[in-house]
């Protein structure tokens, strides 16, 4: 009995310590990134390459996800609106759920899967093949050279993709309403515009920017801390996407409440 209790509490304690160490490491890395940016002297070519890479890679998946999110939300809203018969509320339901909540979360998750996981794999492979050590011996700071460009890129791209994603979600919702539910798309768009969701829209974009920051810091952290060859890289990518997903939900809550309070 005591042994079992001991084992349980031991496991809980160890898990907690590991969590604290990871969160601490991530915060330290965030601090070092900010420090490295103080004289804004990051590598322009590497940043440009990253922007292009990330934009090209994540554009299709974000667009398609957004279309489907809009479609799914309009179907769910229709289920409720149908009973009241007030099709004008369709736009309201879609706009509120997509702009404020589901849009940022899903696009954040997709971005973390596509770009974040890729960053961890890339940096992890560089660590395993000793390329990061090679940079250090050349007196090049890996934070400044590798991490800062990725940080800037993901912050910018996530914000831009969110604006784009909202637009495509509305498109997906309007198309689905028109084709599947027999509601004229103009009714949906009008309902959406009349609801004045500017606040929700901006909150979603702020959420997305914060996700961009957290995704970049977390995936770089896991990439730079890879141990143990090919297997280690796979494990790091796994851990990185899990941490990113958890961070997205926590941040979503924190920003959501702060934004409404203020």
């Amino acid at each position: 009995m005591i042994r079992a209790l001991d084992a349980t509490f031991g496991a809980v304690g160890r898990g907690y310590l590991a969590l604290a160490r990871t969160v601490g490491g991530i915060v330290v890395l965030f601090g070092r990134i900010l420090r490295a940016m103080v004289p804004p002297r990051f590598d322009r070519d590497e940043t440009w390459r990253n922007l292009y890479d990330v934009g090209v890679k994540s554009f299709p998946i974000v667009v398609v996800t957004a279309l489907f999110v809009g479609a799914i939300m309009v179907i769910q809203s229709a289920f409720y609106v149908k009973r009241t018969g007030a099709t004008g509320l369709l736009g309201y339901g879609v706009g509120f759920s997509v702009f404020a909540e589901i849009g940022p979360i899903l696009i954040g998750l997709m971005f973390s899967g596509r770009v974040g996981a890729n960053t961890t794999a890339q940096l992890g492979t560089m660590v395993v093949t000793e390329q990061v050590d090679a940079l250090r011996t050349l007196a090049i700071d890996p934070i400044r050279y590798l991490v800062v460009p990725r940080f800037v890129t993901m912050l910018l791209m996530m914000t831009l993709l969110m604006v784009l994603g909202d637009a495509f979600a509305v498109l997906g919702a309007a198309g689905t309403a028109d084709a599947m539910l027999g509601v004229d798309w103009r009714v949906l768009v009008q309902g959406l515009l009349e609801a004045h969701f500017l606040d929700e829209f901006f909150m979603g974009v702020v959420k997305a920017s914060c996700f961009g920051v957290s995704i970049s810091v977390i995936s770089c952290f896991y990439g730079l801390n890879v141990r143990g060859g090919a297997v280690g890289v796979g494990r790091a990518v796994n851990a990185s996407v899990v941490a990113n997903a958890a961070a997205i939900f926590v941040l979503d809550f924190v920003i959501g409440t702060l934004y409404t309070v203020m």
Binding site: S112, G113, R114, A117, Q122, T125, A230, V233, V237
Partner: peptide, 14 residues
């Protein structure tokens, strides 16, 4: 190699 595993994992998430 390690790049292959990382790439497969990324692909799987998306």
């Amino acid at each position: 190699g390690s790049a292959g595993v990382g790439w497969a994992t990324t692909r799987a998430v998306v």
